[in-house]
Simulated assay, not measured.
Amino acid sequence: MSKKPLIIGVGGGSGSGKTTVVKHILSGIGRNNIQLIQHDSYYRDLGHLPLSERKKQNFDHPSSLETELMIRHVEALKNGYQVDVPVYDFAAHTRDEKTEKVTPKEIILLDGILIFTEPALREQMDIKLFVDTDDDVRLLRRIKRDIMERGRDLEGVMRQYENFVRPMHLEFVEPSKRYADIIIPRGGENHVALEMVIAMIREKLAQIKKNNLASEG
């Protein structure tokens, strides 16, 4: 591993296609070279509340995430240390007792809808990508994901979208687009943009390796 990893952030609204962009980067650069960390892993544990109360929480507000822990983890990885990333249960809204051991790699890839809203996290990133997709497409994707992957019903998904997802997107996510270095319209469907991103990452990685070799010499 190079001494200084390349930190890449992939942000964008819920259902924008961030996962597809992340998969494309993993495939294009090589999974062995990349350590993926998802902001969703850092949701705060709500085990102290009854399940009925947990479901009412605003999971799209920055305060719902322990971003300060993620920042410490990114800093540790940059310095070559292993970290224990939380494992979150999206059906129960609690953290698992077990954690995921994460080791540093040449590229640290950060993924999440709110990763550009916190300055201290944003400043860790060398490249910031924002995936920009129409609201109706994002809503349909979120419905499918929450029902199939997170054990929720349609009524609950729609209520959460109307009360929290959309207003929080307008207040926090959409304004954070201005911090992006590159905006990717249509997400994973924009193959031209994705190929340009892969080329840029390869170039940045090569430059970092060159600088590290020079410093060793």
Score class of each variant (00 low, 15 high):
residue 3 K to R: 10
residue 4 K to F: 03
residue 5 P to A: 12
residue 6 L to S: 08
residue 9 G to N: 13
residue 10 V to E: 01
residue 14 S to Y: 01
residue 16 S to C: 08
residue 16 S to N: 05
residue 16 S to H: 07
residue 21 V to L: 04
residue 23 K to E: 15
residue 23 K to N: 15
residue 36 L to E: 15
residue 40 D to C: 13
residue 45 D to G: 02
residue 46 L to V: 00
residue 47 G to M: 05
residue 48 H to I: 10
residue 48 H to E: 09
residue 55 K to N: 14
residue 57 Q to C: 13
residue 60 D to G: 02
residue 62 P to R: 06
residue 67 T to A: 08
residue 69 L to W: 14
residue 72 R to L: 14
residue 78 K to D: 12
residue 81 Y to D: 09
residue 84 D to H: 11
residue 85 V to F: 02
residue 85 V to Y: 02
residue 87 V to R: 12
residue 87 V to Y: 07
residue 88 Y to S: 05
residue 110 L to P: 14
residue 111 D to Q: 15
residue 116 F to T: 03
residue 118 E to C: 02
residue 120 A to V: 02
residue 120 A to K: 15
residue 124 Q to Y: 09
residue 124 Q to I: 09
residue 125 M to I: 09
residue 129 L to G: 06
residue 133 T to W: 00
residue 135 D to K: 14
residue 140 L to Q: 13
residue 141 R to W: 04
residue 143 I to T: 01
residue 144 K to D: 14
residue 145 R to K: 06
residue 145 R to Y: 00
residue 149 E to Y: 07
residue 158 M to A: 12
residue 162 E to L: 05
residue 164 F to T: 13
residue 166 R to E: 04
residue 167 P to N: 06
residue 171 E to C: 09
residue 171 E to N: 12
residue 172 F to I: 08
residue 173 V to F: 11
residue 174 E to G: 09
residue 175 P to W: 03
residue 185 P to W: 06
residue 185 P to Y: 07
residue 193 A to E: 07
residue 196 M to N: 13
residue 196 M to D: 06
residue 197 V to N: 07
residue 197 V to M: 06
residue 203 E to V: 00
residue 212 N to R: 00
residue 215 S to D: 12
residue 216 E to D: 12
residue 217 G to C: 05
